[in-house]
Design a protein around this nucleic acid. Structure first.
Lengths: 211, 211
DNA sequence: GAGGTATTTGTCACCAGGTGCCACTATTCG
DNA sequence: CGAATAGTGGCACCTGGTGACAAATACCTC
């Protein structure tokens, strides 16, 4: 909550920062691999003791997520700004697209980071613990719109479905770099929102770009 | 693939078994808690060395899953037995319900196990690594039905959505033991299959038992 | 400038999960 | 009996993660 820098300057100044550690760690992860990189390596490269590393990040896994929690605030704000006139389905689509909207120079970074999060088993597993906050935001929005409690079935099924859809899109985007993330995500959301009518005999699916 | 027992009886006979270790471990987990139970405890209780435990289960996490992989074979068979006349949506619903159909005497056991898998963070995280096989089965069925490749967007979004729905149902069932699992699951699947039309203004949602 | 206070850092010890290695044991087969 | 086979136990070791405590470095007050 400190806007400036001199608000609390008493005590020994920090030697490093979350950002620096993140940068060092990701560089090592990308070059050497996640498993092959030990916390000791990260700490030593950053010129810091192993113990200090764990004071900045609760676990080795968490480094790969960076400032995800802060990023979520934008997601929340996105939903809060949706006017009531917009339908729920449209709101979900727009907010999820907006949350995953990145500038061109951010994309290579994002790509590497997501490859880490989605391909390394340990991080893949850890992800569910980070995604709960994401799901909560969606569930609460759906709860507001439908009138059901956020913990009840409708908001939960929709929120978790939205997450599953986004992850599927990312996975597809990572594996085949044919279309920009936004397009893949948009296609995935379209499929998701039509989940009920998925029989190819009923038509309309060739246009959804399923491949 | 050994139907009998005497196929390969040479060598020192095993002192324990997966089943026995699972039973010992779950008992400890339920009474003492997952985190508070060490592998050493499990091994000692089973009268076996710590090293031997890891020859039966790759990790402490895996014990909680028991013979899940074997159970999946039934799931696969369920899909294989679906006649082409049955619509995809119906098939998905029926197969998922069948996969999660348990006899009354199995339910308390299931309840404890699922409480473990869905509430303990370490197991919750580990679950994604176990669920991929489940998703694969669903994705392949959808792929067969739609003509899209199993790795493409349509099968993936649907398979992951199905999983998300099932997990949401389990979570709800665990938290509020008002309705039997089958009913909660069925309600969740109904919501999922109508994901596109979720505006309460369009009606029809009060009957879906969202609470 | 001296001393107190606040904050971060480093070191150390320790625990738990997990793995590789090797000797040992118990069984069947010849 | 001895050889082959398969499971077990013990040991050393690595890695992630935590608690405790002393040392370091800043600011603030007198």
């Amino acid at each position: 909550m400190s806007s400036g820098r001199s608000v609390r300057a008493v005590g020994r100044p920090p030697v490093t920062s979350r950002t620096e550690l993140e940068h060092v760690a990701l560089t090592l992860f990308f070059t050497t691999g996640f498993e092959a990189t030990t916390v000791k390596d990260i700490a030593r490269t950053a010129g810091v003791s192993r113990r200090t590393f764990f004071r900045y990040y609760a676990s080795k896994n968490d480094v790969a997520w960076g400032e995800f929690d802060e990023h979520l605030a934008r997601f929340q704000a996105e939903f809060d700004a949706v006017p009531p006139s917009v339908s729920m389905a449209t709101a979900l689509r727009e907010c999820i697209l907006a949350f995953n909207d990145f500038t061109d120079d951010e994309v290579p970074w994002l790509r590497q980071r997501m490859a880490l999060l989605l391909r390394v088993p340990a991080l893949q597993a850890h992800s569910v613990l980070r995604y709960v906050a994401w799901c909560d935001i969606v569930a609460k929005f759906v709860a507001r719109r439908t009138g059901f409690g956020a913990g009840t079935l409708v908001p939960q099924v929709i929120a978790r479905g939205a997450l599953a859809t986004a992850v599927a899109a990312y996975e597809r985007w990572l594996e085949h770099d044919e279309a920009p993330l936004r397009e893949v995500l948009d296609a995935a959301l379209s499929i998701w929102l039509r989940t009920g009518s998925i029989s190819p005999a009923q038509g309309g699916w060739s246009s959804a770009r399923g491949g």
